[in-house]
């Protein structure tokens, strides 16, 4: 692989930024990536999340899960804010994702009309 050297410079930059962040208070978004999710557009949803995170420069953990049994509500994501209930949003478009990140992740307000479930954990 070529240009691996560039990575070293990048590494120093990332290291500085990481020192400034508090790792324990990261919000998390979990994307449903089972066959049902992927067929319904989960890859575009994930792409939109990564783009929003990049554009707004938010410190957010993005993870994936398999089929959770709500295939008809795919594509769906869970938003887990530190110390708060996990919220599941379903039937999403990429525009919905932008809205959820702006309203829920950044401002802390659940986007009620897109919620399909709440979890206690």
């Amino acid at each position: 692989m070529k240009s691996l050297k560039e990575l070293k410079e990048l590494r120093n930059k990332v290291q500085k930024e990481m020192e400034m962040r508090d790792q324990s208070t990261k919000p998390e978004i979990i994307v449903g990536m089972g066959t049902c999710g992927i067929a319904a557009g989960a890859r575009d949803i994930l792409k939109a999340i990564l783009e929003e995170v990049d554009r707004r420069n938010i410190d957010l953990r993005v993870t994936q899960t398999g089929c959770i049994g709500m295939c008809e509500k795919e594509p769906l994501i869970d938003v887990k804010m530190p110390g708060k209930k996990r919220i599941t949003y379903g039937n999403l478009s990429t525009d919905d994702v932008k809205k959820i990140i702006a309203e829920h992740v950044i401002n802390g307000n659940i986007v009620k009309d897109l919620v399909i479930a709440k979890h206690e954990d």
Binding site: L4, K5, L7, K8, L10, R11, K13, V14, Q15, M18, L50, V53, D54, N57, V62
Partner: peptide
């Protein structure tokens, strides 16, 4: 090359 930095970092 990353020496412990996450490959999942935006920049990487």
């Amino acid at each position: 090359e990353l020496d412990g930095i996450s490959i999942q970092s935006k920049e990487i």
